[in-house]
Amino acid sequence: MTDPYLPADAETRAQARALIDAARHAALAVLQPGGMTPSVSRIALATDAQGMPVSLISSLAAHTAALEATPTCALLIGEPGAKGDPLTHPRLTLHCFAQPIARGTPEHDALRARYLDLRPKAGLYADFGDFRFVRFAILDGLLNAGFGKAVRLTGNDLSGERR
């Protein structure tokens, strides 16, 4: 069997970056603690100053315990269009490593300011004691840009640095 993935090029890297930069939410896939059962939930999403995906999550959410037990996870971003088959619209799976950001650090303060600038409604709960920021360090990704347009991307292909 041949590899179904096309090589990444400048156009597909830019398309993947555009999906990351525009994402307001994502499907987060985690492994449940103590087992091999996967779970998926929707989370709010933004990017940090380096272009990496970040979210503000509650310690009360099941996915938070899952990320603490196993920080490897996946994000699915991309919106189906208003018309047509949802599978013809671009989407991006990111394989990530979740990195919690400690409160009271300069990194947290900078991320809080950026996140609230991008997602102002999060100001309603950003300072609640059970919420914290998580950065998703991208390991690699899979871009599905439509029929016959699947591309495997490296972490470097998806870095926030503009090429």
Rank of each mutant, 00 (worst) to 15 (best):
L75F: 06
G78E: 01
A137W: 13
E161A: 09
R132D: 00
R42A: 10
A10M: 06
H108F: 13
D127R: 06
D85N: 11
R163A: 15
T12L: 01
A150V: 15
P120F: 08
A65C: 01
I43R: 11
P100D: 03
D48S: 10
T88I: 15
A113M: 12
R91M: 12
H108A: 07
T12C: 01
L75A: 05
V54D: 06
F128G: 05
A49E: 11
R17A: 11
T93A: 12
A98S: 06
L94Q: 02
S55V: 08
A126K: 08
E79Q: 04
L158R: 10
L28Y: 02
A150G: 09
I20C: 07
S59G: 15
G148F: 13
D85F: 15
L56F: 13
R17P: 03
D157F: 14
A18D: 11
I20A: 02
R162S: 14
A150Y: 12
A62K: 01
L111Y: 05
E161Y: 08
L139P: 02
V54H: 03
I57M: 06
F136C: 10
G81W: 00
P71G: 04
L6Y: 03
Q99A: 04
R103V: 02
L75G: 02
T2W: 07
R91Q: 04
E161H: 10
A98C: 07
A8I: 10
N144F: 12
G141H: 06
G35R: 14
T72Q: 13
H89W: 14
F131S: 15
A44R: 14
A26C: 13
A29N: 03
Q15I: 08
A16L: 14
E68T: 12
F136I: 14
R135W: 11
T93G: 02
A8T: 11
A145P: 01
A10C: 12
R24G: 10
T72K: 08
A110C: 08
N156L: 15
P120D: 02
I43M: 13
A145E: 02
E11D: 14
R162W: 09
V30N: 05
D157G: 06
L158A: 02
V54F: 15
V40Q: 06
A113Q: 12
A8Y: 07
Y115Q: 03
H63L: 05
G78Y: 13
A46L: 09
E68L: 11
R91P: 08
A44D: 11
I57K: 00
L94V: 07
A145Q: 12
G34Y: 02
D48I: 07
L118S: 12
G34C: 06
A145V: 11
I77Y: 15
T64K: 04
A69K: 09
I20L: 05
I43D: 02
Y5N: 03
D130I: 10
G148Q: 13
R112C: 01
L94C: 15
A137V: 13
I138H: 03
L116Y: 00
D85T: 14
A49M: 04
L6Q: 12
T47A: 05
D3V: 13
D117E: 03
S159V: 07
L153A: 05
A61D: 01
A14T: 15
D85G: 08
K121L: 11
Q50N: 08
A102K: 06
V30W: 09
G78M: 10
T154P: 00
I20P: 00
I101F: 13
R135A: 08
D48E: 09
Y115N: 01
A69G: 09
P100F: 07
G34E: 11
